[in-house]
Design a protein around this nucleic acid. Structure first.
Lengths: 191, 191
DNA sequence: CTTGACAGTGAACATCTGTTCACCCTACCC
DNA sequence: GGGTAGGGTGAACAGATGTTCACTGTCAAG
């Protein structure tokens, strides 16, 4: 039995148990009767970089445990399922979210950011943050109203610019509180 | 020290180490000098359903490790962290992806879909599918070229429409192969 | 002051963990 | 046939792991 043939079972174990299997569990899954057989299998999977290990020898999932296969550009097309073996993969969530405790999903109303490709109905992933830098898209409370705009600092002044010429640039009069910065836009299409 | 104040550190540990911490590691993170203190902390986190445990006592991540808190619209604003308790949450990956085996991430080149809010550099989540219905955004191979366009059926004819008036509508002459349908657009902003 | 709840210490224990050793068996090559 | 590499067995071991016990200090309520 080739060592890689047991890899899908390990991935499945990780998904259902939310942890990596132990050597004993790998042994049982593969039908071995000795943990040494599992250890040798693990050594091969390690050499193939299909799984990883920490300093204490504990098994860790590799990037191959994430679900999404990464292709090139649209123009490069989509390969046949058989050629998928070598595809790079990413974990969508770790790729999008750096600070999970401070991350939220908001729905967009209105067309004020339409030229930045943010349409009504889109979802925006935002990270709670009090500071922003020029060019960031921020969620802010200005003079009592919540809004999403592009943050710009002009010298000492702060501007909140829409991405739509039909909307006015906001110059905060009294109160500006930056609550969050947009880190991603997510638009889903009905299937 | 409140027990929940240590929870973010545990989540951070899980994300960087790709496994749950042991009781000793929780002990060190919290500054305790007895594993019993960590065990008591864990008991409280278990009672609050912030973490989970398997049959052998091993710690497992709960949904709070991977789920995003869901707010309303931008105009409704972002509540203070204290009011977060009742927020609904979703898992980003399960929310976006219905059929993981057939789902891929592609990068967008060109501006042909810009009026649909799909900009160059965006990522599109696509699901391998051979059929499409009018209005779907499809990845298709037309007369030897790969392209992303809006699929439209006009009677017996099939049109592939761009979302940009400067680009031509494609009328497949010989060969049209639909490879995938766009199920989501994801745009990330540099932090 | 007394009481009780709570949080943390220190130590112990049975079990599980990754790792390693010697060994067996089979298949293949020269 | 002889040799060798590879995959598997069985057993052992040191260290790590979750759990538990008795105990100490603190602090607020009565």
């Amino acid at each position: 039995m080739e060592p890689h043939s047991h890899f899908p079972a390990i991935v499945a174990f990780y998904r259902t148990h939310r942890r990596m299997p132990t050597y004993r569990e790998i042994m049982r899954m593969a039908g071995f009767r000795s943990t040494n057989a599992a250890a040798k299998l693990v050594k091969k999977l390690l050499a193939a970089h299909l799984i990883q290990q920490d300093d204490a020898g504990r098994l860790l999932p590799s990037r191959y445990f994430s679900e999404i296969r990464l292709l090139g550009t649209v123009e490069a097309g989509i390969p046949a399922p058989a050629e998928e073996v070598h595809l790079d993969t990413i974990n969508l969530e770790t790729h999008l979210i750096r600070n999970p405790q401070a991350t939220y999903l908001l729905r967009v109303q209105g067309e004020s950011m339409i030229d930045a490709g943010i349409l009504p109905g889109d979802a925006v992933l935002v990270e709670r943050r009090k500071e922003a830098k020029t060019g960031d898209i921020v969620i802010a409370e200005v003079d009592g109203e919540w809004t999403m705009k592009v943050f710009r600092k002009r010298g000492r002044r702060v501007l909140l610019e829409p991405a739509n010429p039909h909307f006015p640039t906001i110059v905060p009069k009294q109160h500006l509180r930056i609550a969050a910065v947009v880190i991603a836009v997510i638009r889903t299409y009905p299937t």
